[in-house]
Amino acid sequence: MKKLTYSIKINKPQDFVFRKIKDKSVYPGWAKAWGEGMSYEGEWKEGGYISFFDKTQGGTKVIIEEIVPNETIKTKHVAMVNPQNIEVELTDDMMRKWIGSQEIYHFKRESDTKTNLEVVMITDEAFEEMMGAWPKALQLFKEICEA
């Protein structure tokens, strides 16, 4: 497993950025760094599941392992889903390598009006190139927050 870290400073308070990352209405606007039509289903609560997917290719399902309000969200990828958000059998090595990947969000207060958002991905090195979309996603997210 490889640890990949991405971060961006956002000119908004920590609680605002924390709420915005969970806002389903803005998710497609920054997740388009991986493709158009991205959505999610599920609840942002500890022990809950969320599926991140698009309506043509499917996606991934995570369990929310920990939420510390305004500070941290820790997730683990536990399944693959089809475009209808139904879990699918792991049919190839790449799917099996993805399961167990971790995605951790840290919201660090820089000042009353500035937050550093850090995303840590712990995943198989086979996904390093795909994770290269994070800087674009974070820039899009920053623009949405600051608009």
Rank of each mutant, 00 (worst) to 15 (best):
T5V: 11
E128T: 15
A79E: 13
F107L: 12
S101I: 00
Q84Y: 09
G37R: 10
G59K: 02
H77V: 13
I144R: 00
K3I: 14
Q57Y: 12
V68C: 06
G132N: 08
Y40A: 08
G29K: 14
M38A: 12
N11L: 11
Y49P: 00
Q84H: 10
V120F: 02
M121N: 11
L90S: 12
I67V: 11
E46S: 14
K74G: 00
M38E: 08
Y6E: 04
G59S: 04
A137S: 15
Q102L: 12
T113M: 07
D92N: 15
E89Q: 12
F18L: 03
K20W: 05
K2G: 14
T56F: 02
M130H: 10
E71G: 01
I21H: 05
S39D: 06
M131A: 15
A33Q: 06
M38R: 10
I50Q: 05
K74W: 05
K9P: 00
T123S: 15
E110A: 11
I67N: 10
G37T: 07
V120W: 00
G48L: 03
A147P: 00
M1H: 11
H77T: 13
V26E: 03
S25V: 04
I50F: 09
R96F: 00
F107Q: 05
C145V: 11
Y49I: 10
E36Q: 15
Y49C: 07
A137H: 07
K61N: 01
E36P: 01
N85Q: 08
I50D: 02
L4A: 06
G59W: 04
P135M: 05
K74P: 01
E129I: 13
V120K: 08
N116A: 04
V81N: 05
K9F: 03
G35N: 06
K136V: 11
K136I: 12
G29S: 09
D23Q: 05
V17A: 04
F16Q: 09
N82V: 08
E46C: 07
E143W: 04
I99N: 12
